[in-house]
């Protein structure tokens, strides 16, 4: 028997597989397809203080082994998320969830976190300082160590729940941002968010996406994500949730060897709605194949 359990800030997960924010909504579409309780946790749709429609369409462009999205944090606002979406999810999922929050100011991050702090279902607050799709939005906080630290402190001040900062890969040195968050009191880190990318429509000779650029995700970015998790693991003591192109049980194992304590699955959910179920099903067999008895013992094993 392979032990799939892993721990994030004292929260024991049955397995390390977590659907990533923005690819799983609030779970409703997937609850019709399989029992969500097989998942380690769920990182729910990125939430802002006020409701947002998001960016104009087209918001999606295909790439080799991935896609670009420019959804732009479409969400019903934190009040509705806490009052309606989380209770609806609770009917399908009895474990602690990861609340993903975004903001346009440090005050907004704090307000969102304070509201999420009051939701019993929320096990971890994941602070998105890395959305590439919102002008003046989270990414400006995620590309500067001092700003990332300021957001971390502001969120930590209003909640007792573990705070994980979700980092952008669109920086010269992700390690310095990671360390700044750790020094500011972050309980953990989640990385990576999408890579800023674009496509041009050859017939129209204009960008495919209305907002011109967007966040690139999918299997194509896995090596970049893995490398960054590996680098950050060497520099910090706090747990890392690894993500970026994870699509198979082998990818999960590889991410954990790089240093991830848990792993999020994003784009794969969009092309195979059963992707997380399939990965969890395959994990014990693949672990056994590589002579692994306990996944948590693997964390950082490649260093």
């Amino acid at each position: 028997m392979v032990n799939l359990q892993t721990t994030l800030s004292g929260i024991v997960l049955d397995n390390p597989v977590i659907p990533a924010s923005g690819t799983f909504g609030f779970g409703e579409e997937f609850a019709r397809l399989y029992d969500l309780n097989i998942l380690g946790s769920i990182s729910v749709k990125g939430t802002t203080q006020e409701p947002r429609f998001g960016n104009p369409t087209p918001r999606i462009a295909e790439c080799t082994a991935g896609l670009i999205n420019s959804v732009g944090l479409q969400n019903p606002g934190v009040e509705k998320v806490v009052a309606e979406e989380l209770p609806r999810l609770a009917a399908h999922f009895r474990k602690p969830v990861i609340a993903n929050i975004s903001g346009f100011s440090i005050e907004e991050y704090a307000a969102c976190a304070a509201r999420m702090d009051g939701a019993d279902q929320v096990g971890i607050i994941e602070v998105n300082v890395s959305c590439p799709n919102v002008h003046g939005g989270g990414i400006s906080f995620g590309t500067d160590p001092a700003a990332a630290a300021a957001v971390t402190k502001a969120v930590k001040a209003v909640t007792k729940k573990p705070v994980y900062i979700k980092l952008t890969p669109n920086v010269t040195d992700i390690v310095s941002i990671a360390k700044a968050c750790e020094d500011a009191g972050a309980d953990g880190l989640a990385l990576i968010n999408t890579l800023l990318g674009m496509r041009i429509d050859l017939k129209r000779k204009k960008p495919v996406i209305a907002n011109k650029m967007g966040g690139f995700s999918g299997p194509a970015i896995f090596p970049v994500a893995l490398r960054m998790v590996y680098q950050v693991y060497e520099a910090v003591q706090i747990p890392i949730i690894g993500m970026g192109g994870v699509s198979t049980a082998d990818d999960v194992i590889e991410m954990m060897l790089a240093g991830a304590a848990a792993v999020q699955v994003g784009a794969a959910n969009l092309v195979n709605p059963w992707a997380c179920r399939d990965i969890i099903r395959d994990l014990p067999g693949q672990a056994e194949h590589y002579g692994i008895r306990s996944l948590s013992e693997l964390i950082g094993g490649a260093h």
Partner: peptide, 9 residues
């Protein structure tokens, strides 16, 4: 993106 309501694309 997905065709089944998950991605908000």
């Amino acid at each position: 993106g997905c065709g089944f309501g998950a991605c908000m694309g």
